[in-house]
Design a protein around this nucleic acid. Structure first.
Length: 569
DNA sequence: GCCGTTTTCGGCCCGACTGTTTTCAGTCG
């Protein structure tokens, strides 16, 4: 008997909707903030919050109290919070979309609705075109123009999109390099969510110090990739690249570079929590410095390390700055030493031309792995390409290569498909012959994914579960799996769980990986490379692992193969 | 609505920008 409980995303969306509706109705601001905080917390939680709410443990999560927990139970029982239903009856349905328009907040939207009777995007456009918005005090011609401009661009009719990290990171690095090459540049850094290596972003932030800020911003808006200049001042500029990415550059004074980098790296929630904590200790933190309230003394620093130290924290790596326990840990000196790319000793998921989609031969993959300093590489071609004697042929090839490449070791692996009925598409006899078996979902993601994965974990020949949910960023959601149960079983059977580094996968996601790590599960960071250059994708997997608070010792492939082999038994 | 090495009540980050204003509210990150 399986119950279908609302997903965390759904609970969070409903709280955000409640916040929007409450704001439009002019309700108390702090309550709205509480709803939004709770929504963020729920989105960042790996376990099922609906289940927690039913068990009465959701209120153990920071930002969730008795009242919100009750609202969550209402969603489980009735599909909707009573508070949402009540407000939806009062507020026209489309009004919340007004809030997506830049510059249009809840106060203004509410007045347009109440005083002009305008409550749809179409009516809003008409009102702006007929210059009726300017009849409201506080709104003028410029406001109407901005609203019309946004509506023409289609903003409001669809939810804002986020772009995968894999698209943004190379782009932001190229921009950093280009700016560093400019003679006026002193220091240039990526910032924002990309610096924290969040899996997706809305815009790409850069900050810099310069001998001549105006010259640097001028050079920035003239970079070859720039297709549109949205804003351009002496110390701040926003541009859009040819492929539609939005970049923000801020040039700041060198003496508070550390404070500013800290501020613009975020996250917002991290900064708010840090500042609230600072207030309790008699400090006031802004992007320009840390003020000791009693004396008025301002501490400005050129490095982030100094900023954190001044406030009584160990340095917090950007990947951890999500207000999910990092501040307390940094204060108590118990931040983990996060895993790094250089810690990896090998890769346990890769493909060769034995798979139809592989671009490099086994030998080329081995050479590339060796060039990265690896001591082993598991070639894990797809099971359905290894039929009709091809397994034996590949085994022979690998044996030959191993004789030549010693002490480097090619592992005979396979990526076996977890079928819709939960069985694997190779027999146990065949699986027993491999050094390393990765089992992955590739189809039927909505057909009992948890049970199918659990069955695979129980197979004694399966060493690792590949890309847990099968999601493809901005393409498909992936399977809704019960991570807690999977982690528990993986732990019991010594089955590893993979962090797949493909930029459009990043699967396990950060929150799942953190849960797995805290439970003590064995975790691998693999490239799933289909070409030699793609071995480098592990950088993304490492970032994901760091966001999950993982250390070197928690990652299986930071160890020699002999040790891994022994650990899995 | 949440939360507590000041507290179960009374707080709740901080500053910049914008458009509209003669001093500021609303919005944004």
């Amino acid at each position: 008997m399986t119950r279908s409980l609302p997903r965390n995303a759904e609970l969070a969306d409903q709280l955000d909707l409640l916040a929007d509706l409450s704001e439009l109705l002019g309700e108390q601001g702090f309550r709205v903030v509480a709803y939004r905080r709770a929504a963020t917390r729920i989105r960042d939680t790996a376990a099922s919050v609906a289940e927690m709410a039913l068990a009465g443990t959701a209120k153990d999560l920071p930002g969730i109290g008795k009242t919100i927990e009750e609202k969550l139970v209402e969603v489980v029982e009735n599909g909707e919070m009573a508070a949402v239903a009540k407000r939806r009856a009062e507020v026209p349905e489309e009004l919340v979309t007004f809030l997506r328009l830049p510059g249009l907040g809840p106060k203004t939207a509410a007045r347009i609705w109440r005083e002009l009777g305008v409550s749809t995007l179409a009516a809003l456009q008409e009102a702006a075109e007929h210059e009726r918005l300017r009849t409201l005090p506080g709104l003028g011609a410029r406001s109407e123009e901005k609203i019309l401009d946004a509506l023409r661009k289609g903003i409001g009719s669809e939810a804002p999109t986020r772009t995968p990290l894999g698209v943004g990171l190379p782009a932001v690095r190229a921009a950093v390099e280009a700016l560093r090459a400019h003679p006026a540049a002193v220091r240039v850094s990526e910032a924002g969510s990309v610096r924290r290596r969040r899996e997706s972003f809305r815009d790409l932030d850069l900050i810099a110090t310069a001998t001549d800020p105006a010259a640097l911003t001028a050079a920035f808006v003239a970079l070859p990739f720039v297709a549109e200049v949205v804003a351009h001042g002496d110390t701040k500029a926003t541009v859009i690249s040819g492929n539609g990415l939005r970049f923000d550059l801020r040039v700041v004074p060198p003496e508070s570079y550390g404070n500013l980098l800290q501020h613009f790296t975020g996250s917002k929630d991290h900064n708010v929590a840090l500042r609230e904590d600072a207030v309790r200790r008699g400090f006031s933190v802004s992007e320009y410095g840390v003020t000791t309230v009693e004396t008025g003394a301002v501490f400005a620093a050129e490095t982030e390390e100094e900023v954190y130290r001044h406030l009584g924290y160990d340095f917090i790596p950007p990947e951890l700055r999500e207000n999910s326990g990092e501040l307390e840990a940094a204060r108590e000196g118990r931040l983990p030493t996060l895993v790094e790319v250089g810690d990896l000793t090998g890769d346990l998921h890769s493909h060769s031309t034995w798979s139809a989609d592989g671009k490099a031969t086994t030998e080329e993959m081995a050479a590339a792995a060796r060039a990265r300093g690896y001591r082993y590489l598991a070639v894990t071609d797809h099971s359905h390409y290894l039929r009709d004697g091809r397994i034996e042929q590949q085994a022979e090839e690998i044996a030959d290569l191993n004789a030549r490449l010693k002490p480097f070791r090619l592992l005979r692996g396979v990526e076996v498909n977890i079928k819709a009925d939960g069985t694997l598409d190779l027999s146990d006899d065949v699986l027993a012959g491999f050094d390393w078996v990765v089992a992955s979902l590739h189809t039927s993601f909505d057909r009992n994914p948890t049970e199918r994965i659990l069955a695979s974990i129980d197979n004694p020949h399966v060493d690792c579960i590949g890309h847990l949910t099968g999601r493809r960023l901005s393409k498909r959601e992936g399977a809704e799996v019960d991570v807690e149960r999977i982690v528990e079983r993986a732990l019991a059977t010594k089955t590893a769980l993979e962090i797949n580094s493909q930029p459009d996968r990043l699967d396990m996601r950060d929150t799942h990986a953190r849960l797995a790590g805290e439970a003590g599960a064995l975790i691998t960071i693999d490239s799933d490379a289909h070409s030699t250059s793609a071995l480098g994708y592990v950088e993304y997997g490492i970032s994901q692992a760091r966001r999950a608070w993982l250390t070197k010792s928690q990652i299986l492939n930071t160890r020699p193969w002999s040790e891994i082999d022994k650990m899995l038994g």
